[in-house]
């Protein structure tokens, strides 16, 4: 599903440049549940942004769903994101003046689905994350855990190939963290490829494979106990 070879990424800082990713090789197959771990500044988000087509790499190759990602213009990237990828962010990133239902339906709007249909589909997904009754509430009327579940419903609503989550539990307490992770596990059990960034050991333990980054290189890539147990 995702294949990365000798990937490099630098950010220009003034005259110098900051070499963030220094030759990453990573292969994630369909249906995997992978977490990326590493200390702050190790390049986790940079990697996820490149995988999520929100940023472009400098060197190396990236194949998404078998397609070589190269020379994408913004429009093409937007269409691919809409089609293949679902995003979950640490700070939820819901649109404040839209209801939970409208937030979930938004990716379908950019897909070109008509309003009636997309609200129906969105409601199904809200139901799936257990928030059907909160459909008409605005984000500021929801708890952190509820917001993140709305965001997960939004990431799933287009039925993407991969769900990318950048520290999805970073802003949540332990109980809500568990409920969000349970939800991600359920999604993975249904066959969805899930790619999570975290720096919490307990969160990573709940995925099936842990990739550790340090200073822009992968230092370890192991299966978790949960995966071995299967």
């Amino acid at each position: 599903m995702i294949r990365i070879e000798k990937l490099h990424k630098s950010y220009p800082i003034g005259k110098d440049s900051l070499h963030v990713l220094k030759g990453i090789d990573l292969h994630i197959k369909e249906g995997e549940f992978v977490s990326i771990m590493g200390s702050s500044g190790s390049g986790k988000s940079t990697l996820l942004n490149i995988v999520g087509l929100l940023d472009i790499h400098d060197e190396g190759e990236y194949y998404l769903n078998g397609q070589l990602i190269k020379d994408l213009n913004e429009k093409k990237a937007a269409i691919l994101r809409n089609k293949f990828l679902g995003f979950v962010f640490q700070s939820f990133n819901l649109i404040s003046y839209k209801t939970a239902l409208e937030n979930v339906a938004l990716p379908l709007y950019y897909k070109g689905m008509n309003r009636k249909e997309r609200l129906k589909v969105a409601l199904d997904y809200l139901d799936k994350v257990g928030l059907k009754d909160w459909a008409s509430h605005l984000p500021n009327e929801l708890s952190g855990g509820q917001k993140q579940r709305v965001a997960i419903a939004r990431a799933l609503v287009t039925n993407p190939k991969v769900v990318l989550a950048d520290e999805p539990t970073g802003a949540l307490d332990t109980t809500t963290t568990d409920s969000v992770m349970d939800l991600l596990k359920d999604i993975n059990d249904e066959g969805m490829t899930v790619f999570v960034i975290t720096h919490e050991e307990e969160v990573a333990e709940q995925t099936k494979r842990i990739v550790r980054l340090r200073d822009g290189v992968i230092i370890s890539d192991t299966l978790t106990k949960a995966a071995k147990a299967q």
Binding site: G52, I79, R81, N82, N93, I95, Y110
Partner: peptide, 8 residues
């Protein structure tokens, strides 16, 4: 957000 979700 809109762009991440697929807005061109």
């Amino acid at each position: 957000i809109r762009k991440a979700l697929g807005a061109t």
